[in-house]
């Protein structure tokens, strides 16, 4: 409950301190991170190709919004559907494999989708991206204004968080965690492991698709990089920086990651260098991410208070 309160407070405070466009992006990215964490944190599958679902959903929903003027709920629905469907395709090829194979496969299939989007210029616009995506009204309320759109995104984020919490606390979530802990034992107990993995993959794809559609409507464009491997990498890194051990890790990671790359990029042209150094430092010294560092700090503090 108190975590929820904290999140609501952050939602309210965030637009006061960063631009609404960036604040919106943070929550969109947080939805995307929640999805990845179902795979990475809860099932133990490191997918390095999540932008496949994010980007595919953005392109399809963007296309329908642009050419057929579908309403906002249809757009979100299409995004979720396309995300799930593309994840079913990719997942079918990947869930049989594990470890490094799984990482490389998701990555390589991501590249395949990327090059299809790159070359299919009549639909996607290729390198130029797909511009001119409208932001339709929600039940008669306009969300053109950036703060209204921010509110809309925040609402969907809270909804996604609630849904994800339900999923990970459900029996399904327990099974997934059992698979993460010991795949062989889960199999021995009688679970159809590949099937559950595929299910997790599809659910994550659906959430990624939702994030993709929101992203398309944020700037009115689906850029080619939305389906590129850098976005796939960024969501993994954001989640790890936040801490993949907790449901809330990706949320913090999303904030830290986007804020860091946005503010540092205006200071120094060679900002990716600092980002790289930050990654290395996190890996060598701060494994567990922000959430764990935070917990450690508070344990240390309270032990000092009692002591």
């Amino acid at each position: 409950m108190r975590t929820l309160l904290l999140i609501v407070i952050s939602i309210l405070l965030l637009p006061l301190v960063v631009r609404p466009a960036i604040a919106s992006e943070i929550w969109i990215f947080a939805i995307f991170g929640l999805a990845l964490n179902l795979l990475l944190g809860y099932t133990g599958m490191l997918s390095f190709g999540q932008s496949t679902f994010f980007g595919s959903a953005a392109y399809v929903a963007g296309w329908l919004l642009k050419h057929y003027g579908i309403n906002v709920f249809a757009a979100l629905g299409v995004g979720v559907g396309v995300g799930a469907l593309s994840a079913l395709l990719v997942g079918y090829l990947c869930v049989q494999r594990s470890g490094l194979y799984f990482i490389m496969l998701t990555f390589a299939l991501n590249q395949l989708f990327y090059f299809i989007a790159y070359q299919w210029t009549s639909v996607t616009g290729g390198e130029d991206g797909m511009p001119g995506i409208p932001r339709p009204s929600v039940l008669g309320l306009s969300i053109q204004e950036s703060y209204w759109y921010y509110a809309f995104i925040s609402l969907l984020f809270l909804l996604s968080l609630w849904a994800m919490k339900r999923i990970v606390e459900s029996p399904l979530g327990k099974i997934l965690q059992a698979i993460r802990e010991n795949e062989v034992r889960a199999e021995a107990v009688g679970y159809d492991v590949p099937r559950f993995k595929l299910l997790a993959f599809v659910i994550a794809g659906a959430f990624s698709g939702l994030a993709g559609v929101l992203y398309a409507m944020l700037f009115g464009i689906v850029p080619l990089e939305a389906i590129g491997f850098v976005v796939s990498g960024n969501v993994v890194f954001a989640t790890l920086i936040g801490g993949s051990g907790s449901l809330y890790g990706p949320i913090i990671g999303s904030f830290v990651f986007i804020w860091l790359s946005e503010s540092v990029s205006t200071m120094w042209a060679r900002w990716p260098l600092l980002l790289g150094v930050a990654f290395v430092i996190v890996v060598l010294f701060l494994r567990g991410g922000v959430v764990e560092a935070w917990t450690r700090f508070w344990t240390w503090r309270s032990s000092k208070q009692t002591g």
Binding site: L46, F48, F237, L240, G276, V277, F279, V283, L284
Partner: peptide, 29 residues
Amino acid sequence: GVRRLYAAGHDYQLLFTFGLALILNELII
């Protein structure tokens, strides 16, 4: 670096090597 990560899991190994790639790429520039 890599030596300290054999037990760390692929996720952190990936974060490390990707960070390294960013660093090398920028150092080239």
